[in-house]
């Protein structure tokens, strides 16, 4: 079953068309990787899925994007609810300058949970879910900015999990991290796909091969190829995909 269905979607920044006629169905409880050279539109497309592009002035979008059958741009859709269902982890870890606890509790509090016992439970299960509970359980009241980069990124994943999303969008979540932190995040992501649908932008093709079930290859604002990762990398259908993954350009 697909969580997100995109039909004939185009996006403009002012006069510049950044995405051309994208069609894709993102399958449930799996990891979909978006690959492609810098500036190919993969991050832009990712940010369209939870309407983060709304924050950028001058963006125009046409076409149809459905989350579980609902048009995400329809008037009835509350964008805050949409972002609650479709969480996001950013390229650079961006914990708030607050305690670890308050970081995790930020989302639930935003959506109206104030009960201390309930919040404690959510914080613990989110931190466990992001495999960071054991490292931070004794310093929940400490400022999150004192953690290492890798820990901060897992904290951000935990923060996203705390609002119980269905989908996690990850925008190059390991590009600012060292190799050890990167492999921990990769392991975590593979565990998370049992419960969540994950869409991950990566510029690292080995990472796409290691982690993802499906791969979408973007080039110059077009979705060139989309399929099972194993197929895309072993028998690419499109010459451009082959050229890219064999390192002829990029």
């Amino acid at each position: 079953m697909s969580m997100i269905t995109v039909k004939d979607m185009c996006l403009w920044y002012g006069d510049h068309q950044a995405l051309h006629h994208i069609n894709i169905e993102i399958p449930e409880k799996s990891i979909t990787a978006f690959i492609g050279p810098s500036g190919c539109g993969k991050s832009t497309f990712l940010k369209t899925l939870n309407r983060m592009n709304d924050l950028i002035p001058g963006v125009k979008i046409t076409g149809d994007i459905r989350y579980e059958g609902t048009d995400i741009f329809s008037r009835e859709v509350d964008v805050n609810n949409l972002r609650k269902k479709i969480g996001m982890v950013f390229q650079k870890p961006n914990p708030f300058p607050m305690s670890i606890y308050d970081n995790i509790a930020y989302g639930p509090r935003t959506h109206g949970i104030t009960n201390k016992v309930q919040l404690d439970e959510i914080v613990e299960s989110a931190l466990r879910g992001a495999a960071i509970w054991d490292e931070v359980k004794d310093r929940l009241k400490k400022n999150a900015l004192g953690m290492s980069g890798g820990q901060q990124q897992r904290l951000c994943i935990a923060r996203a999990l705390a609002v119980q999303p269905k989908i996690l969008l990850m925008d190059e979540p390991t590009s600012a991290l060292d190799p050890i932190s990167t492999s921990r995040i990769e392991e975590l992501v593979m565990e998370l796909k049992e419960k969540y649908t994950i869409v991950m932008v990566t510029h690292n093709m080995q990472q796409a091969v290691r982690v993802s079930d499906y791969t979408a290859f973007f080039l110059l604002g077009e979705l060139v190829e989309f399929g099972k990762t194993d197929d895309s990398f072993s028998q690419p259908q499109d010459k451009r995909t082959e050229d890219y993954i064999t390192g002829r350009f990029g």
Binding site: M52, L55, K92, P95, G107
Partner: peptide
């Protein structure tokens, strides 16, 4: 105030 703080909060569904 870093833009990433705002993005983080919006990404969690904050108004």
């Amino acid at each position: 105030v870093p833009q990433s703080y705002r993005e983080g909060a919006f990404g969690l569904g904050a108004g």
